[in-house]
């Protein structure tokens, strides 16, 4: 029991530390992913559509010989879908067992977020599914949503399994 307590406090400790994140915008909102998880940021390239893929999966791209799936975060978060622009980018992130690309409207900066500026996610904030969120950072005059990148896909996979079970 004391062990559990230590673990919890350790987790709390990590959250309390400063965090370096990559900030990008999707539908005029700012989102951030821990910099350690970002593999690279690339320009939008031609995406191959895979027939029968889930709707929010845009398709696949060839990342130097490796074929990786690309997700549109707008679709993932059920936001308005718009045409990709010149500033659109693919943020390539490493998940525990695979690499995926996230299409964002633009990448703005790399920031250091002090831990005391982060609030726990509230279901009411930002209008997107709070399951994907790790917290909300209040910085000067803007809010940055910290994404829980593993959940973005794990929830996706769960839905997939459900979907294929129905089929």
């Amino acid at each position: 029991m004391s062990q559990t307590a230590t673990q919890t406090s350790q987790q709390a400790q990590t959250v309390l530390d400063d965090e370096q994140v990559v900030v990008f915008d999707v539908a005029n909102e700012f989102y951030a992913v821990n910099i350690a998880r970002v593999h690279e940021i690339i320009r939008l390239q031609q995406i191959t559509v895979i027939p029968g893929a889930p709707e929010f999966v845009e398709g696949v791209i060839n990342l130097r010989g490796k074929v990786i799936p690309v997700l549109d975060l707008r679709k993932r978060f059920h936001l308005n879908v718009s045409e990709h622009t010149r500033s659109s980018r693919i943020v390539v992130v490493e998940l525990s067992n695979q690499t995926i690309g996230l299409i964002v409207d633009g990448v703005s900066e790399v920031l250091r977020i002090p831990a005391d500026q982060v609030d726990p996610p509230s279901p009411l904030v930002a209008g997107i599914d709070s399951r994907y969120l790790r917290g909300i950072a209040k910085l000067e005059n803007r809010l940055i949503v910290l994404l829980d990148i593993d959940k973005v896909l794990s929830i996706l996979e769960q839905q997939q399994i459900e979907a294929s079970a129905i089929n």
């Binding site: 895979i50 999966v57 696949v60 799936p69 695979q98 996979e157």
Partner: peptide, 23 residues
């Protein structure tokens, strides 16, 4: 391999990288 995301995709068994880098 296309990975788990496309598990349910019917009619596609994998991906091929072509000469022009397209998949």
């Amino acid at each position: 391999s296309l990975g788990n995301v496309f598990r349910a995709s019917n009619g596609v068994s994998g991906g091929a990288v072509l000469g022009d880098g397209q998949v």
